[in-house]
Design a protein around this nucleic acid. Sequence first.
DNA 1: ACATGCATAATTGTATACAATTATACCGTG
DNA 2: CACGGTATAATTGTATACAATTATGCATGT
Lengths: 222, 222
Amino acid sequence: MESDNYSLGARVFHTIRENILSGKYETDEELKEKTIGEELGVSRTPVREALRQLELEGLVTIIPNKGAYVVGISQKDIRDIYEIRSRLEGLCARWAASYITKDELDELDENIYLSDFHAAKGNAEQVVELDNRFHEILYNASHSRELKHVLLDFHHYVQRVRKITLADTQRALRSNEEHRQITEALRQHNEELAERLANEHMMNTIQNMDSYGWDNLFQERK
Amino acid sequence: MESDNYSLGARVFHTIRENILSGKYETDEELKEKTIGEELGVSRTPVREALRQLELEGLVTIIPNKGAYVVGISQKDIRDIYEIRSRLEGLCARWAASYITKDELDELDENIYLSDFHAAKGNAEQVVELDNRFHEILYNASHSRELKHVLLDFHHYVQRVRKITLADTQRALRSNEEHRQITEALRQHNEELAERLANEHMMNTIQNMDSYGWDNLFQERK
DNA sequence: ACATGCATAATTGTATACAATTATACCGTG
DNA sequence: CACGGTATAATTGTATACAATTATGCATGT
């Protein structure tokens, strides 16, 4: 999804974020600048910058002169995010319906085709990557910097949950089917339909998580 | 809205953000760590941290080894944000309709009452503050950390535009009337109505900006 | 045994020093 | 005069040093 040609500071940021979202750093764990710096082989400076950024993202809480603590992501947080996303992905699809190009539609088609293949094979990693890309194309097609920004944030935020739900072949294939319908609505430039389908796509994911069982989604964490 | 008991670093962050949003730093202007540090009487370290945070907020772009540049906020950005907010404020009101308490409803009533007073007097500053507080109560009443987080971000983002639109007495009074209707829906725990009214409240703001004339909203910037 | 207070250690906050990279200005050459 | 190259300066990136604050542990007294 994104290149590795990052500066050191940016890499530190991504590493810590990944460690929080993957559950490597536990909820309420204190993140000490010195310790993390030693782990990653850098000084405190880039670690501090990363922690300050992560606070803005809501992943850590910083108590001045005390420390940085991992903010837990509750089941309700995840639900809320998907409900927020349902509204915004809907708006995104609506806008994309106006602007989307033939090239983008072609890539969406290919994306779904490939995802079906990998889902059938059980290649969860690739399915997640293709899902990332599918939504990213829509974000770009919305032609809205602000909407893309906020949606990308949330998308990253729930990456861990998506890795689990999309590992289920049945859900992955159904998700692809929903992607196909959205793509079709976009091709027809049908704003109303595109919005409704993208909206439902997210709500279906919540339903899926409900039936999957939230305990299973969180078992690795604790 | 928030206390001033901040650490130095946090204050630097807020100052720079304010300078960007108020237009003191022009679009595409290069923000040099040394210069800003001297302006604010601090070293480069807290400035760097602030700039990295502002990049995450989308207010500056950082080109590695080159510099930090102010990202311009276009008219379309503002429109998009209000449309995004219309969806999310609607969702927020819907959730708040379930959770809102009598105390919060009382504060909303008082808030509107005071705002009417200040609007009539032409105290734009107070009207903006009360508007901030009105929406903040709703964000809290939604009982959703994630929704509150993203809405607060956007709310700050458009602070400058709000200062202008709410300086118009007619618009301020109409805004208060809309607040009153939303509050009434909340009091009745009418989710559907609350969502629709909050949604329309934002869309009306867009309409108002349209009739106000975008050029006037941006005249100070350029 | 437990609470209290003080000394010490650990940690964060800020400033500064140094390294790496990029911009600038000057000079020579065609 | 235009162009290019090189030395110099300016700026960012990272590490370290020092100050301020907070945590820890031990001794003391009750």
